[in-house]
Design a binder for these strands. Structure first.
Length: 358
DNA sequence: GAAGCGTGGTC
DNA sequence: TGACCAAGCTT
């Protein structure tokens, strides 16, 4: 019988963990050496870090912990407060699921997060990656989280040339073979740190990599070409008109978006639909939140979402102090920063102010 | 399996 | 400037 594969694979953890002990990034959600991380902190950070950089997440993580120190307090918070605190972070379904998850854990689990991958996987907003990551990092389970960093590291280690996302299950199995029984949580974080700091997408720093000797892609000089990814579709450009309504008492009209879909549940500057065809004035006026003397402001607001670009024209109007609307909220202009506007809406507000319609 | 879902940084 | 990329999940 030949030498078991595990003899060689275990050397990956043996090489990586000492490197991690010297080079681990110091991050606010990580436990100090020798301590167990708080599952609430691990969960909150992992959800915030979905498709989002560490630098972007840090201030939000601190703000959430300061305001809601435990999962019980987060569960008890009004949902709109959680959404407003999430504003600017993107992928707002995460905030809706975060709040729902906190309520489930608080109500059904005695404020204790499940300590297994399968138990975590049942909670809203916790998918395959996040369940595996929390199980490993918070509970030291030998699970195999596979995020974008680990996909890249594993694809290079084994020189996997099949394109993603088709190769994902192959990579997950390879990762599973690498996970050590000792310190699996540190191993997962070490793989992510390696991906972020050494095994980088464009210019891998193989000269500094503790796994270079074991890396097939590095040996062949093709590390920078992996992983192969399927081509992405081109983004169309859509058009919209946004209505900036200033009331004589200094309030601005906002509106809450439907719960599902783009910017679901978030406040918005009332606007037309976002269509590929341009809006003519008569059609746009039919979508205004109220009848008023609308003026088109110079310039446009441009923004890019995951799957389309949008060009927004802003119409402004001033209305009397006693104006009301059926569906909408009047927000004092000088408290607009508390409203929790998504970035595209903040851009519209900034544009209106810059054009003198504050 | 594919599409929908944000934002900011980088090259 | 535009395309790519980041600790993905849901339907």
């Amino acid at each position: 019988m030949s030498e078991p594969a595990s003899a060689k694979l275990s050397s990956v953890a043996d090489r990586l963990l000492p490197w991690y002990d010297r080079h681990a990034r110091r991050l606010p959600w990580r436990a100090p050496p020798g301590a167990r991380a708080d599952p609430y902190h691990v969960w909150l950070s992992e959800v915030m870090l979905q498709q989002t950089t560490v630098q972007t997440v840090q201030p939000y993580f601190h703000a959430f912990l300061a305001r809601w120190p435990s999962v019980h307090e987060l569960a008890a918070a009004p949902r709109d407060d959680v959404l407003a605190a999430w504003a600017g972070l993107g992928y707002y379904a995460r905030a809706r699921n975060l709040h729902a998850c906190a309520q489930t854990v608080s109500r059904d689990h005695g404020a204790q997060f499940p300590d297994t991958e399968a138990g975590l996987r049942k909670l809203p907003g916790i998918g395959p990656y996040t369940a595996a990551a929390i199980a490993a990092i918070a509970f030291d389970r030998p699970s195999a989280p596979l995020d974008g960093n680990i996909e890249r590291v594993v694809a290079r280690l084994f020189a996997v040339q099949d394109p993603l996302p088709g190769a994902k299950e192959t990579l997950r199995a390879r990762m599973g073979d690498l996970v050590p029984h000792d310190r699996p949580g540190d191993f997962a974080q070490a793989m992510m740190d390696l991906g972020a700091g050494i095994c980088q997408p464009r210019k891998p720093r193989c000269m500094l990599c503790p796994l270079a000797e074991a890396c097939r892609a590095s040996a062949r000089g093709i590390a920078g070409d992996l992983p192969v990814k399927a081509a992405k579709k081109a983004k169309p450009t859509r058009q919209a008109v946004a209505f900036w309504t200033v009331r004589a008492d200094g309030c601005v009209l906002l509106r809450r978006r439907p719960d599902k879909g783009l910017l679901g549940g978030m406040l918005e500057v009332p606007s037309t639909d976002w269509t590929e065809a341009a809006w003519d004035a008569a059609d746009a006026r039919g979508h205004a939140p109220l009848a008023a003397g609308w003026t088109e402001l110079p310039g446009v607001v441009r923004h890019t979402f995951t799957h389309f670009h949008v060009t927004i024209t802003v119409w402004a109007a001033q209305v009397p102090a006693d104006t009301t609307v059926a569906a909408g909220e009047w927000w004092p202009f000088d408290r607009l920063s508390d409203a929790g506007l998504p970035t595209v809406m903040r851009k519209i507000a900034d544009h209106a102010v810059k054009q003198g319609a504050g």
